[in-house]
């Protein structure tokens, strides 16, 4: 695909750390969905991390350093969009708080905040792109990632979009809104508690009989997929974007065939 004839919004794609390393397919899915909806997508090379690991560890200075970098890199786009409720909630809600006492950076943080969107809510709430020509054979259950759900109000949008996918059946799990136990560094600082939590999540997933789990945050999905694999449960795990873009044709997270890029 080259230049879109009627220039839609210019979107800077926020390539989250986990996606960049572990699941490039999510990035390509995001680009496809955005371009299909008429956006011009760019992926600025100067980006790294949103700064959340520092922020949530109480290192506000480090978080601010990263936030400034993100602001500088993305502020000239019409929108900054990323396939993660967690990173995008940080940009949307936490940046303005981080700079609340900084008259120079506060307006820039606020300006970026209001044009920052998690991918699915951007598609549904901003672009009104609710059609999908994707096909997926299977029964999926959707896990509500906490930051997306409570920070950004993402609940109906992914379900509505997934409902458009031909061949896909959605089955709700019990406690879909309960945390999976990932929590960033939490899962390695308190591994036993995290394991208990992901076990509860996995039990609810298995109880639905679904063959696929989808969700909007790779942290949660890696946690869930890792646990499912460890107990040899034959359930595939995909990011919502992969399914919507029709790029969920492989074995899913923790099941990738080597060199399948």
């Amino acid at each position: 695909m080259t230049e879109t004839p009627t220039r839609g919004p210019r979107v800077g794609l926020f390539a989250t750390c986990l996606m960049n390393v572990f699941r490039p397919n999510v990035g390509f899915s995001a680009v496809k969905l955005l371009e299909d909806a008429g956006c011009t997508v760019e992926v600025p090379a100067a980006q790294t991390c949103c700064g959340q690991p520092g922020y949530n560890s109480g290192d506000y200075d480090a978080a601010r350093a990263l936030a400034r970098q993100v602001i500088e890199t993305f502020e000239h786009y019409d929108y900054i969009v990323g396939p993660s409720g967690s990173c995008m909630a940080t940009i949307r809600h936490d940046y303005p708080v981080l700079f609340q006492d900084d008259p120079q950076w506060l307006p820039r943080a606020q300006a970026l905040s209001v044009k920052s969107w998690e991918l699915l809510s951007f598609l549904a709430d901003v672009l009104d792109a609710t059609q999908s020509d994707a096909h997926y054979d299977g029964t999926a259950t959707y896990h509500d990632s906490c930051s997306g759900l409570r920070g950004l109000g993402i609940k109906g949008q992914p379900r509505a979009l997934l409902g458009e996918v031909d061949g896909l059946k959605l089955k709700e799990m019990e406690d879909s809104e309960v945390c999976c136990g990932f929590g960033g560094t939490f899962c390695v600082k308190y591994p036993e508690i995290s394991e208990k939590m992901v076990d509860d999540k996995v039990r609810n997933i298995l109880a639905t009989g679904a063959d696929t789990v989808v969700g909007g945050d790779l942290g949660c999905l890696m946690n869930i997929a890792g646990r499912l694999k460890r107990i040899n449960a034959p359930v595939k795990v995909f990011h919502t974007a992969e399914v919507l873009a029709g790029l969920a044709d492989g074995p899913g997270l923790a099941g990738a065939v080597k060199g399948s890029d």
Partner: peptide, 13 residues
């Protein structure tokens, strides 16, 4: 307690 999902080898960027 978990497997680590493996990357495919090259980063998105």
């Amino acid at each position: 307690s978990r497997d680590l999902p493996a990357p495919a080898g090259r980063t998105f960027l």
